[in-house]
């Protein structure tokens, strides 16, 4: 590999995607020329399911279940769908798992690339817009059934607040006020958060509410995985506040999940 040096006019700047395109390795080429849906050819591939995020007093929390499904089969029980995008933001993914995880890797590289080349961090809004452009660039793959819908959240260093962004398949970017959930169990997760959310929640309460939201989603949606007590598989939960991204340990999430389960058990069979 030669040193990537460009003529001034061709310089890709701090944009990593542009760099890949200039180097002839664009990450957004359609998979096949015909453009028809992969599922119409009988092809199946894993899908990620439910991600929930909400704001609390000092930041935001995002949680994702661990299941990937392929049609009516469980493809993976331990997939991770919530990632640190950089030090101050987090991204969760629903949709076609393969290209979605690849997009997260591209997004992480892009944010770090910008930071290193320019010597400063992108603003949170700049990061959200970058993700939007990547989703739009993926549109031809989405037309073939490889739809990727992320949920993005982070700490805005300029405004000193946590913010949550949602996307549609065309790259449309929408900012949420306090919470959102995406994926097949998203509706149930949203309802749970809507009923439990309060102003200025503590981190512990927000984590607990996010885990309850995933629990209720798993209760209603077969594609969402609930806490697996036998194998010890629990949701991935991460928070972002003024000190940056931090992922809860398995022990912490297990304890919070147990508390939710104990509470549910007390309601008995009435629920």
């Amino acid at each position: 590999m030669a040193l990537p040096v460009f003529e001034t006019r061709e310089d890709p700047g701090p944009n990593f995607v542009n760099l890949l395109v200039r180097s002839g390795a664009s990450p957004f080429e359609p998979l096949c020329a015909s453009g028809s849906e992969l599922s119409s050819k009988g092809m199946t591939f894993p899908h990620g399911t439910t991600i929930a995020a909400l704001r609390y007093a000092d930041g935001i929390v995002m949680a994702g279940d661990r299941r990937a499904t392929e049609g009516n089969f469980i493809a993976h029980r331990r997939i991770e769908k919530v990632f640190a995008a950089d030090r101050y933001s987090v991204v969760g993914i629903a949709g076609a798992a393969g290209p979605a995880v690849e997009m997260v890797r591209l997004f992480q590289t892009q944010l770090e690339h910008y930071e290193k080349v320019e010597g400063v961090n992108l603003s949170l809004e700049g990061k959200a817009n970058q993700l939007s452009q990547m989703i739009r660039a993926n549109l031809s793959m989405a037309m073939q059934g490889l739809v990727i819908v992320p949920l993005f959240a982070g700490w805005d260093l300029q405004r000193k607040t946590g913010r949550i962004f949602t996307y549609d398949v065309t790259g449309g970017r929408y900012e949420e006020v306090a919470y959102h959930a995406i994926g097949s169990g998203g509706k149930d997760a949203r309802t749970t958060i809507k009923l439990g959310i309060k102003e200025e929640m503590s981190r512990t309460d927000a984590v607990s509410l996010a885990i309850s939201a995933l629990y209720e989603a798993a209760d209603e949606d077969s594609a969402t995985g609930g806490p697996d007590l036998i194998r010890g598989i629990y949701p991935i939960v991460a928070t972002v506040d003024r000190t940056g991204f931090s992922k809860l340990t398995d022990t912490e999430v297990a304890a919070a999940s147990q508390a939710v389960i104990t509470l549910k058990r007390s309601a008995g069979e009435a629920q």
Binding site: M1, L3, V5, L19, S23, A25, V117
Partner: peptide
């Protein structure tokens, strides 16, 4: 500085690929 940026590009491309 041109060499610095080229180095970041080389490393990030390699790490991504």
């Amino acid at each position: 500085d041109q060499l610095r940026v080229a180095g970041i590009r080389h490393a990030d491309t390699k790490g991504f690929t």
